[in-house]
Amino acid sequence: MARGRGRERELRVRGGELSTPRLREGTPQRAGLDPGEIDALVSQVRGLTAGERPWAAGVVVVAGRGPVLAVAEAAGWAVRYAAWDPVTGAGVELPVERRVAMTVDTPFDLASLTKLFTSVAAVQQIERGTLGIDALVGAYLPEFRAAAEHGITVRQLLTHTSGLRPELPLYDCADATERLAMLRAEAPVGVPGEYVYSDLNMLLLQHVLERITGRGLDVLIHDGITRPLGMTATRFGPCPGAAATEDQRRPWAKADRGMLRGEVHDENAWALGGVAGHAGLFSTGRDLAVFCRALLAGGSHGPARILGPDFVELLLTPPGLGFALDQPWFMGELAGRGAASHTGFTGTSLVLDPATDTFLVLLANTVHPCRRPPDSRPRAAAATRLARAAAKA
């Protein structure tokens, strides 16, 4: 897979080890991006928070090319509403003086972007030889009898081809013992080998990783990814300063928890204590830009190395391990050349394009104050602007 703009030429020798330039803030011109398209991108994103019923209460957009962070902008509100009124079908707005403005450094509930970190943690173990990509899950977790009986593999978990259903109502279980028993007994309902996106894949993968390493997923991600990359704002919750998400109540939600801010939105992740393979991480736009940059640079950022280039290649080779590849419905014109991405239910997304060495992080609290039918057209439009900015430069 091409890495774009000569990734190998960026490598520097420092103390006998390969090193890549750290991400630094600069201008679109310095990043090799057309300033007109970038201005249009920023204006377009700002407009997403306008009006009485905007696409999102608040938005952060971060984008760049190579080691240059060319865009870091915020608009709207991290906290705009006190509650959701199901009678009027509208949010109950806070007085302006009680709202919290969005900033570039506002943390967000990443929702399913967490899956990317779980996937990288798994590929790290594959690189170390402690995990076999085509190994049977039952070899590591024999007590997960349904997965063992049906021959589910690690690769199937990473590619959502295990046949497991999208989710289980773990949030309705009485206690941790019942939740674990339900997960252990869950058998595939689909045809193994066919793609069915499922949170259960990452929950099983979490158990595999914790079994083979003897460490919790939160520790694996911190020690193996966020700490070496200097991603100090990325962690599992609680995260009190985060952008608000939903006034979570039945019947539109699966639990009655009220307005959420800094507590994981996903009901299953919440039931599991906030640390889960499919959801639970909080992060900022700048931190996620570093994550994107490290993968585009072959697994390194400055002197830190989280994966070798061959294993980044494995991660991003079709059909992708954890990542979705070339999906125009939310990647716009960045799709079609091996671009990798993911979205999160709360309104988060990121995309990295090895062909042009560009990345785009779009974080929004679209579920504030209440979840709604998903609309990824703004994500696709923003990605298209970035693709055109790279093409025109």
Rank of each mutant, 00 (worst) to 15 (best):
G258I: 01
F345D: 00
F330M: 12
P374T: 12
P374S: 10
G338P: 10
F359Y: 15
H368W: 09
S376R: 13
A271T: 09
A304S: 14
A279P: 14
D287R: 06
G258W: 08
V275R: 15
G298K: 02
H368R: 03
G241A: 14
T366S: 14
G262H: 13
G280F: 14
D256Q: 09
T356Y: 04
V312A: 11
V290N: 01
A253Q: 13
E246I: 01
M259S: 08
D375R: 13
L321N: 08
G274P: 14
G280T: 15
R250G: 10
H265N: 15
G273R: 12
A271H: 11
L315G: 10
T343S: 13
R250W: 06
T358G: 14
S376A: 13
D266V: 07
L314I: 07
S349D: 01
D353M: 02
T358N: 05
P251Y: 07
P240G: 08
A324W: 02
S376C: 07
G336P: 05
P354R: 05
A255D: 06
H278D: 14
L350S: 04
I306C: 06
A271M: 09
D326K: 09
L288T: 12
A340E: 01
T317F: 09
G298Y: 04
G298I: 09
D266A: 13
D326G: 09
F282V: 08
G258P: 09
G299L: 12
G241Y: 04
R250M: 15
G302T: 01
V312P: 12
F359G: 02
A242R: 01
P373Q: 11
L325S: 02
M259F: 15
L362S: 10
D310W: 08
G322H: 09
L307G: 03
W329K: 10
G320E: 01
V312Q: 02
F330C: 07
E246G: 06
T348D: 10
S341A: 15
G332I: 03
L260W: 11
C370Y: 08
T366D: 06
V275A: 13
P319L: 13
L281P: 10
A244R: 00
R249V: 02
D256H: 11
A339T: 08
W270Q: 14
P369C: 11
A276V: 13
N365R: 08
L316Y: 09
A355N: 00
S300N: 00
D287A: 10
L260S: 11
G347I: 03
R305K: 07
V275F: 13
D326C: 05
G298C: 13
A276T: 10
A269Q: 08
P303R: 12
T317K: 04
H265M: 14
V290T: 11
G344R: 11
R337I: 02
L325G: 03
R379S: 05
